[in-house]
Every structure is written in C-alpha cells, then in structure tokens.
C-alpha cells in the first residue's frame, strides 16, 4: 500500500515510524488444543516490522517463537488476531491465496533445512518457481543459478542434499527462500545446527539480502547471532516482553574476513 511512495536513503533501522510496514500483527493469539488441554502458544502479540528491517526474535524455549514465525510465513493460521503482510489482510485469505502468498512474497528457512532428498540443490532451489506459471523453464533455471551464486554454491548445483554439509544445505535452503524475490525472508533458527564460522557465513548472506531491501526475520537463541541484526524482539510465554534496536549491528562479512581462514591452514598445522 504505502510502500511505493517511499523516498530514498533512510538510515537503516532508524526512524521506524517513517518506514514502510511489511509485517503488521495485531493481538495475535494461537492456542493449540490437545484433547482437553489448551496450550496458549501466543497470547496476544502486537508488532510492526518495517521494510529494510532485520529482526532477531529471541526467547526461551517454548515461548512461542516458532509458532509466531509459522504464522508470519502463512504456514499456520492464528486462532485470533490480525496479520497484514505487505498490506494484505492475511486472515481473510483462502488456502489457495495463502499458497500464492507463500509463493510470491515469502521466503522461509527452516532450522532443519527441509530440502527434498534425492533432489539436486538446483532443483530444490527451482521448487518455488515451479509453482509460478508465469515463469518459463529458462528463467527458472537462470534465477535459480543466480540464487545459488548469491549463497556461494553455484558449483554445487547438481549435488544432492546428502552430499552437502549442514551449512551448505542451509545455504541451499536460503537460496530457495530468495529465488522468488520475496518481500520478507523468515528463518527459524537458521544457524541452530551450524558451527560459528558457518553461522557467520549464513548471517553474512542475510545481511547482504537485507541491504538489498529484503526484510529479514530470524529466530535465534544466541545473542552473538542477534547482534548481527538491527532489532531484537524477545518473547516470553507467548508475549513480546522486549523490543530493542541494536546499537551497532556487527558486520558478518568483516568478521569473516578477519577470522583466520580454517580450511587449508588448519590442515597444515
């Protein structure tokens, strides 16, 4: 809606009020019913996330982070409350319209990668485009290769997930999430299964994407990782208890460069 009328050159993360709202959530409630027991995963969440924002969602295990992310990703539906994505009232959409939304506007990265097994990296990345009738096979291939290049895996395009390391699989998953030019990338603990260096690589990719104007929301348990984002939101018991802007986000690219290169040198030691 008010997205296109935005001026240029805002300082990232600052002056939030003037920025365009990509995600807007009002009194979001999610209750799981397990027989007689009701689990209140979300108890009224209100939050606005702006374009160009890079948000880290923190909180203890069971505080509702994944539930929140799944609803943002249109993978799950809230019990109550409103959710606007890029100006669209998501709660009023049909299943097919939700699928379209996931296909065109959202990139989702799972902690457990969720790649199709015995399917090459390239084909995994192509998957979202397969469900977009407007895209020719040629364009599909080209865009997927570009996405793989963006995560530094162009040379592994024809490898299968079981031939890739965890970090590489996560990068394939990120390539898949960005191949459809989404307005928002949602990543639930994208570095949860990765070591420090690989985590840095993944964060560097997210920062690069964020600089290009894609909104990024990640869930993380590690404050170190959250320090690479611009805003940290903390959940507790299904509510947001804290939302702070990060003073000086760390730069993953620079830190990677200053890190002793592991691969060859370590072998020689």
């Amino acid at each position: 809606m008010h997205r296109k009328c935005k001026g240029v050159g805002q300082a990232a993360g600052e002056d939030i009020k003037m920025d365009t709202t990509i995600v807007s959530v009002k009194s979001l409630v999610k209750t799981y019913k397990m027989g007689d027991v009701e689990v209140h995963a979300l108890r009224g969440v209100n939050v606005d996330i702006m374009k160009d924002d890079f948000v880290a969602i923190m909180g203890k295990s069971g505080s509702g982070k994944s539930t929140f992310m799944n609803i943002l990703g249109c993978l799950d539906i809230p019990t109550r409350g409103k959710y606007y994505l890029d100006g669209v009232d998501v709660s009023s959409l049909s299943r097919d319209e939700l699928a379209n939304l996931r296909n065109r506007k959202i990139g989702f990265v799972f902690q457990s990668f969720n790649l199709l097994s015995r399917t090459s990296a390239l084909e995994n990345v192509e998957l979202p485009l397969m469900y977009n009738k407007k895209i020719s096979s040629h364009e599909m291939h080209e865009r997927s290769m570009k996405a793989l290049e963006a995560v530094g895996l162009a040379d592994r395009a024809h490898h299968f997930p079981n031939q890739l390391s965890g970090g590489e699989q996560q990068r394939v998953a990120i390539a898949r999430s960005l191949v459809n030019d989404p307005v928002v990338i949602l990543a639930d603990e994208p570095t949860g299964n990765l070591d420090t260096r690989t985590s840095l690589e993944v964060m560097a990719i997210f920062q690069k994407l964020n600089q290009k104007g894609i909104t990024v929301v990640i869930v993380t348990h590690e404050p170190d990782i959250a320090a690479f984002t611009k805003q940290n939101i903390t959940f507790r018991d299904g509510r947001i208890i804290k939302a702070i802007a990060v003073d000086k986000p760390r730069n993953a690219m620079n830190e990677l460069a200053s890190m002793p290169a592991v691969t060859d040198e370590e072998d020689e030691l």
Binding site: L75, N114, N180
Partner: peptide
C-alpha cells in the same frame, strides 16, 4: 507428507 509440506511451504496449492 513431509515432501508435501515442503512443496506447500514454497507455494504449492492443494490441487498442485
């Protein structure tokens, strides 16, 4: 079912 979940998460509709 997991495969279907993955496909739906990237935009497959029920009928696809």
């Amino acid at each position: 079912t997991r495969e279907i979940g993955i496909r739906m998460s990237v935009g497959a509709r029920g009928r696809d």
